[in-house]
């Protein structure tokens, strides 16, 4: 084997790529293609399906019909991403610059929730946010909040759930990018008459942009497609596009519409990411070798 590789050096990169490519082909490209074909079907489960390019109307119909859920997904996803950022940045900053010998322990604590199932953790939030749960119960008892006050089954609960569930995806990339920053750059900035805040704004923040970019993508993309939080923590007015797709696929058996929705979601995310990358100027950043 070693001899073969030495004689065919040019084959090595392809051999290393092969398992990943195979995996992607079997579980992403082929089903993706299948789903694309499905999205151009017409008919029902009872009458049978028929493929026709003219069925591109599936897309426009799906978009018109489920536009509220789409826009809600964008809104909730964006809100949750902004919230995870607001929580993660100070957290990652503190761990990276002030963590000292507790660094690894603190990082472990960030990831620790992953040791429990995603579903279980989300269900736990129904207990915490419940109308007479451990958070609202006592506050209502002492009269701080009116008895009819609700968190569970509101948009707030859905966004809070998404924020909670995706927090580590934001914290870890930001931590990594902050950790990489040479502390002497901050000293150099302060030496050159920047205040502590000035040094943060001119040096630390720009140099952590790649982490912020990666973290917000890792949060925003799954948050937009998420349906578990809306299902468990929301109400019928908070359904997101993920819930619709799940419902169309599994309950309505309306495969063409569900497939079309999936593709619209994917396209929407791709466009959003492209715009975001342009705004943040990440090409420039990664070229800087930071």
């Amino acid at each position: 084997m070693g001899g073969f590789l030495r004689r065919h050096k040019h084959a090595v990169p392809y051999l290393l790529l092969a398992p990943g490519l195979l995996w992607l082909t079997v579980f992403y490209v082929l089903p993706g293609f299948q789903m694309f074909m499905t999205s151009l079907w017409s008919g029902t489960l009872e009458t049978g399906y028929e493929f026709a390019l003219s069925n591109v109307s599936n897309y426009t119909e799906a978009l018109t019909r489920f536009w509220p859920q789409f826009s809600r997904s964008i809104l909730y996803g964006a809100a949750a991403t902004a919230l995870t950022f607001a929580i993660s940045y100070p957290l990652a900053y503190t761990i990276a610059f002030r963590g000292g010998r507790y660094k690894n322990l603190l990082l472990f604590l960030v990831v620790a929730p992953f040791f429990t199932s995603f579903l279980l953790r989300t269900v736990s939030w129904t207990i915490i946010l419940g109308d007479t749960g451990i958070l609202l119960g006592p506050l209502k008892e002492i009269g701080v909040l009116p008895a009819e006050f609700q968190l569970l089954s509101t948009p707030i609960a859905v966004v809070a759930g998404i924020t909670y569930n995706f927090l580590p995806f934001m914290t870890l990339p930001i931590y990594v990018s902050l950790e990489k920053i040479d502390k002497r750059l901050v000293e150099a900035a302060e030496d050159l008459f920047a205040t502590s805040f000035g040094a943060f704004r001119r040096i630390t923040l720009p140099l952590s942009l790649p982490g912020i970019f990666a973290g917000s993508l890792l949060t925003f993309i799954p948050a937009m497609g998420d349906y578990v939080n809306a299902e468990l923590l929301g109400n019928t007015e908070t359904t997101m596009i993920g819930n619709v797709i799940q419902n169309q696929f599994l309950t309505q058996n309306n495969y063409p519409t569900a497939s079309a929705l999936s593709f619209i979601l994917m396209a929407g995310i791709l466009i959003a990411v492209a715009v975001y990358a342009r705004l943040l100027g990440t090409d420039e950043l990664t070229a800087g070798g930071v």
Partner: peptide
């Protein structure tokens, strides 16, 4: 002037 210069890479 810092050891290894500490130039701002960005």
């Amino acid at each position: 002037v810092f050891q290894n210069y500490a130039l701002f890479p960005h």
